[in-house]
Amino acid sequence: MEVYLASPWIPREWVEVHGLVPRGLFSAPAFGTLTLRMAEGICSFAQQSLELARMHGAQGNAVVFVSSCDQMRRGFDLVGVPQGTRAFLFNLPATWQSGAAWRLFRAEFDRFTRFLERLGGCRQSDESVAAIIDSARDTRTRLRSSWNKLSARGFAECIARFHWDGRAIVERASDADGDTGVPVAVVGGPLTQAQLGILDAIELAGGRVAVNATETGERSLGLETPVPGRVAGNIDCLAQFFFWRIIDVWQRPNTRLYAWLRERIEERNVRGIVLWHHVACDLWRAEAASLREAFNLPILTLDSEQARSDHLRLVHRIAAFMEILR
């Protein structure tokens, strides 16, 4: 059975460990191609996720949402209930510094495990579990280190591929144009496959995406936490590993996101930030001023509606921004 995961923070490896097929819903090739029928005021990404979840649910597959934003939680109410036992909402704590937050995650991890078992999943032997976890970790590490070996689109597609089927094929695609171009960070919500044209536009305008910090970019590979050793037999240790790799805007405080960004922005000499958000996404939209203050860099804000309805204007805006940064 395929299990569609609406967020990169749901441990896809754990689904695989149970003999099920994890699929990043946000990496689905169909993302961005559906006709929407939801009300105004709903984030366009959440809307697409709901539509896809309905579609895959109707085909007998399972869907997993996260509680990280109001839009996703309320969206789950609309698709999860009709799908009954094949739908799950992972209660991801927003806080992360207290024992209670960790225990909540830990309890949710157990509940998620029971959900996978109800779907017919069965945890494999400790040896196989270790192999799956180690291989996914290696793939993530390999992907992380290839940020400067690929074009922005190539890198994003590799990551999408990983979230879709767990595979990474970076070695065959060394298409980056060295260190040329003005280094920028693209920060924000999920950039779906249909929206990757934004990355092309940045490069065409003389920019270089030195950090893809969107929810589907390098950041989605998670924080490289210390290797948990032989984690297979130690569920606690494994859950910690999954918990601590989360870096996102909805965490409170969201200093982990800023620390992660700072490290890369400084190391890669980023000169400007492109903030990407979906229409009606309050969480990312609210960060524009804080990002400007934190990094003291020029910011260009782009949203999914411009990308959909007026791509040409968006390209011009990107070009003008690059002009300023040059």
């Binding site: 509680s67 934003c69 109001d70 839009q71 939680r73 704590p93 927003a94 806080t95 909805w250 409170r252 405080p253 969201n254 996404c281 309050d282 969480l283 939209r285 609210a286 960060e287 001023a289 804080s290």
Partner: peptide, 14 residues
């Protein structure tokens, strides 16, 4: 924080 509206969560973070 957590299951609170995005508006407030974002504003309080700001």
């Amino acid at each position: 924080a957590g299951a609170v509206c995005d508006d407030f969560s974002a504003i309080a973070q700001r």
